[in-house]
Design a protein around this nucleic acid. Structure first.
Length: 926
RNA sequence: GGGCGGAUAGCUCAGCUGGUUAGAGCGCCUGCCUUACAAGCAGGAUGUCGGGGGUUCGAAUCCCUCUCUGCCCA
């Protein structure tokens, strides 16, 4: 069979075919181990579930590339590797999406009603929710699609409810009226984490509050004058001399009268919160609309007066500000205060405001009834798990970030006033107000027996359900009456690794640790023993990756318009090239500035691999025509290497061994960049540049070239080393390697996919260090000759003789490999010299001198300059070395091997220096 | 305000548990369309390792400080 590969690699024709094949053939689906005679190591990982509304961005692609490389690598090392995909129902984001859709039809969700609205969201999800997973398939992510989940699936919903009920029963969930971050756009509470702080230019207003007894006034400073309608006090610092006399007096709160009535009277009180240096030193206290003021109110037993409704409009019947938006109210009130001559001053002030992460509107701190998790007991375990090393962070610095956050954690507001999400399983008794939390809808109040129950309307924070995923995806809590230990949980919990970005370190990672430790401690070990913290953790390792930025290091954002769509780049350069780009730039702790020039380079790399395959197939065809019989089916077998095995063949297997070790080490340390560099350098710089060029010497067919063992061995070795290289590359470039691997086996491969074969291991190949060392010397010699030839102006095609001086080892090596010199450096003949060589046509290295015999005069000026420069560099090195060696403290304190190394280096430098000096002196005068 | 990170070749980044003459890719310069590959081959140039100070026999690497810069938390 002849192989007709196009001259240039075109990823578009093969990638979609393989992506579809991998899914269709269920290659990466993993059945639950039955527990019998299964001692294979396991590698389990959860895909951070993208929002069901999401579109793939570069961050996803980086994340998935890293996870896929690791999963493929572990899988090829024979481990049971499960990578579980799914999507998150993303409460706010999804509800917004559908509300927007409704708005475009002139409707809103309230008209529609709760149940029909939720129905509508499900329809939306069915239609569009799969988009991001389809994009994942296109990237070749080797996930187990049979285990795909959605966070609102029935089985997960049951688990979420179970967790909520248990936490309630354990007294770890409470409900109460607290100041929370309120998003007036979508009208729900959000957690602290969902608020983004931004510095903005604003104003600070100084407002005069008259004393009720008419003896004067006090001027308060505020950035939010509109909330003064909700003021219940004025606070001053107890140490502030200016105001000491006023403490305990009442002020008349301007603008606060309703229905034409008088203004309210509120007290002046002393509280440390009032900072004398801030503003006027007197602050208004508005407990219902500011978290700090709420705390003051608690301390002093003040009432909470809410004056803004859930859309942040003034809600104060009878007031002439009633119904105004918060900012409109502010303007109107400032005008009114000015008219009343109570506005003392307006100053510029930079303030930090909270913005809703989802909607972008300014958060309104608002007093409302919410559900909270008492987080401290959970956080304690989560801190312990990390401090005791049961969970390891890479890079390690994130451990500190995590611990810092955990130690300063606040109770978690888990209720959301949304419709889309897991509805809180609580029923309020209309008669006695008892809260009935239950797994099944109760028929009567547990306290008073009333049947008048209404279900809580709030749903749970999306992160509550995703925080449970590490065990709920494995079927927890299992069947009724079970201990929660399902077969999947037995086999796969804890997962091995979590790969994610630091942006969800607190949102998700921290919550998983807390909830995982909390719930799993109650699940026994497979052998029935009690589970300890080290086995209750949701994952043993966390790898935090960088942010992908644009080529100018700017954060990608829609508003800047610099978002790079991975699917676009993938279409342009091929998935493999983009994956390789991300992998090679993924060095820990540094953001990735994604630039297409890098990707272009890796597309060239893919093309290089493609063409190496073309070369191989071409040689195979020629060999067959020449009567060689060998089977491509033996590609996976490294041939025995007899005594007459050519050096380059011993060398390439030696290198394969070393590179396999290097890749293993790099991936163990999550050094994707080093792993990628190692395979790149090996394949291009060694396999193609040296090995393929050298074996052309052995692959001569036709007239005058009899069939021989060396050629046969070379063919077998070529195929075997290439096949191994493909396996080595396949986690990084799964599409290209899959295509070529099947082609290599002539579509009769020993496995359904290269991904199901063995990853090259150092011991799979003879390390043969002597051959590697010999080859390194020859490479140095060849490179030196090439450089000399170029300098002397020897035409590329013209062969030239050389003189060589070196020790016996070099002489023997060169003598045995004259054919290499001839092919790689156009050497016509070699003459060995007894004495050192110098002169303008010679170069000296530490191990040999070589001269190229060529007539043409060299450029004396250029050569003088080159030699002078080199001489200066050598002299500098030599001086430094000699100075060190003359330094007694160095000689006495430095370790022996350092001193010895320096001595050797110094001697070599001296030799090179002398040679360069001689060469310079030998140059004719300018 | 508290904390973390970064500053190394024109660009993007490695190297940093101190140790021999600081690397890679891209870009740049020169010569080659050598039947695997011009998305290629061969050769070449390029850095007072942000400034200053200190520790040490020895500092890109450790410490202090300054400047610039990014991020997280409040």
């Amino acid at each position: 069979m002849s192989h007709e590969l196009p001259k240039t690699y075109d990823p578009s024709v093969i990638e979609e075919r393989w992506a579809e094949y991998w899914v269709r053939e269920h290659l990466f689906d993993v059945a639950t181990p039955d527990g019998t005679a299964d001692d294979a190591k396991k590698f389990t990982m959860l895909l951070p579930p993208p929002n069901v509304t999401g579109r793939l961005h570069m961050g996803h692609m980086l994340n998935q590339t890293e996870m896929d490389i690791l999963t493929r690598w572990h899988r090829m090392r024979g481990e049971t590797s499960v990578w579980i995909p799914g999507t998150d129902h993303a409460g706010i984001a999804t509800q917004m999406m559908v509300e927007r859709q409704l708005a475009s039809e002139g409707k809103n969700r309230r008209e529609l009603g709760r149940e029909p609205f939720i129905e509508r969201v499900w329809q939306w999800k069915e239609l569009y929710g799969g988009a991001i997973l389809d994009q994942m398939r296109r990237l070749g992510a080797s996930v187990d699609w049979s285990r795909e989940y959605f966070t609102m699936d029935d089985r997960l919903s049951v688990a979420v409810k179970e967790c909520f009920v248990r936490l309630w029963e354990q007294g770890l969930i409470y409900r109460g009226a607290y100041i929370v971050n309120w998003d007036p756009a979508i009208q729900t509470a959000v957690s602290d984490l969902e608020v983004e702080h931004e510095e903005r230019a604003g104003k600070i207003y100084h407002i005069r509050y008259p004393l009720a007894d008419g003896t004067g006034s006090i001027v308060v400073a505020t950035t939010r004058p509109e909330t003064m309608l909700g003021d219940v006090a004025v606070a001053v610092n107890p140490e502030d001399e200016r105001y000491k006399a006023l403490i305990g007096k009442l002020v008349r709160l301007p603008l606060s009268g309703v229905n034409g009535g008088p203004d309210r009277e509120i007290p002046i009180l002393a509280d440390d919160w009032a900072k004398p240096e801030f503003g006027t030193g007197a602050v208004k206290v508005t407990p219902a609309h500011d978290p700090n003021d709420f705390a003051i109110g608690q301390r002093h037993g003040l009432p909470n007066l809410s004056i803004l409704n859930d859309t942040a409009h003034v809600d104060l019947p009878g007031s002439h500000y009633d119904g105004l938006d918060r900012y409109a109210a502010r303007e109107r009130m400032i005008e009114d205060l000015r008219e009343l001559d109570l506005l003392v001053d307006i100053k510029d002030h930079t303030l930090s405001i909270g913005l809703s992460q989802r909607t972008g509107v300014v958060i309104e701190p608002r007093l409302s009834q919410q559900w909270f998790i008492k987080i401290q007991p959970l956080a304690d375990k989560a801190i312990e798990a990390v401090e005791q090393g049961h969970i390891r962070f890479t890079p390690d610095q994130y451990r500190k970030t995590y611990e810092e956050w955990m130690k300063n954690i606040h109770d978690w507001c888990i209720s959301r006033q949304l419709w889309w999400g897991h509805r809180i399983p609580a029923w309020h008794c209309i008669k006695c107000a008892e809260i009935n939390v239950a797994r099944e809808t109760p028929t009567a109040c547990a306290k008073c027996g009333s049947t008048e129950l209404t279900q809580e309307t709030d749903v749970l924070d999306t992160w509550f359900s995703s925080g449970l995923l590490p065990f709920t995806v494995f079927g927890w809590p299992g069947t009724e009456g079970s201990n929660g230990l399902t077969p999947d949980l037995t086999a796969f919990y804890p997962t091995e690794l979590l790969v994610t970005g630091f942006d969800i370190l607190f949102f998700w990672v921290a919550r998983m640790v807390m909830l995982g430790c909390h719930f799993m401690l109650d699940v026994p070990m497979p052998d029935g023993s009690k589970r300890e913290l080290k086995d209750a953790v949701p994952f043993r390792e966390v790898y935090i990756h960088a942010l992908v930025r644009d080529a100018d290091r700017q954060k990608m954002s829609k508003t800047k318009g610099n978002v790079i769509d991975p699917i676009e780049v993938v279409t342009k350069y091929g998935t493999d090239a983009v994956r390789f780009t991300l992998a090679s730039m993924a060095s820990p702790g540094t953001d990735i500035a994604f630039s297409e020039s890098r990707t272009e380079g890796y597309r060239a790399f893919a093309n290089k691999i493609w063409n190496a395959a073309r070369f191989l197939f071409m040689q195979a065809d020629r060999a067959k025509e020449a009567g060689y019989t060998f089977s491509m089916q033996a590609s996976g077998t490294v041939p025995d290497l007899p005594a007459n095995t050519p050096l380059e063949t011993r060398w390439i297997f030696g290198r394969l061994s070393a590179v396999s070790a290097e890749v293993d080490r790099a991936l163990t340390d999550y050094r994707f960049d080093e792993a990628a560099a190692a395979v790149y350098q090996f394949f291009w710089g060694e396999f193609c540049d040296w090995y393929l060029e050298l074996i052309k010497l052995r692959l001569e067919f036709g007239e005058g070239h009899e069939k021989n063992d060396v050629t046969a061995l070379t063919l077998a070795s070529l195929v075997a080393s290439f096949e191994a290289a493909l396996r080595l590359l396949s986690p990084f470039m799964p599409f290209l390697t899959e295509e070529l691997w099947h082609a290599l086996y002539e579509n009769n491969a020993p496995a359904k996919s290269i991904a199901l074969t063995r990853y090259p291991q150092p011991t799979d190949f003879a390390a043969d260090e002597a051959s590697v060392a010999a080859m390194t010397t020859l490479q140095e010699l060849i490179t030196t000759i090439r450089a000399l030839r170029k300098e002397l102006g020897v035409p590329e095609k013209e062969a030239a003789p050389i003189n060589l001086h070196g020790d016996n080892r070099i002489v023997a090596l060169v003598d045995a490999n004259r054919d290499m010199l001839s092919r790689m450096a156009r050497v016509s003949s070699v003459e060995f010299a007894e004495a050192t060589l110098s002169g303008s046509n010679a170069r000296a290295t530490a191990s040999f001198d070589v001269a190229v015999i060529y007539e043409r005069q060299i450029d004396v000026v250029a050569e003088r300059e080159r030699l002078s420069k080199e001489l200066a560099k050598l002299e500098k090195g030599l001086m430094a070395a000699e100075k060190q060696l003359a330094n007694e403290t160095f000689m006495s304190k430095a370790p022996a091997h350092i001193v010895e190394g320096l001595r050797k280096q110094s001697a070599e430098t001296k030799m090179l220096y002398d040679k360069a000096k001689a060469a310079l002196d030998a140059l004719p005068p300018a």
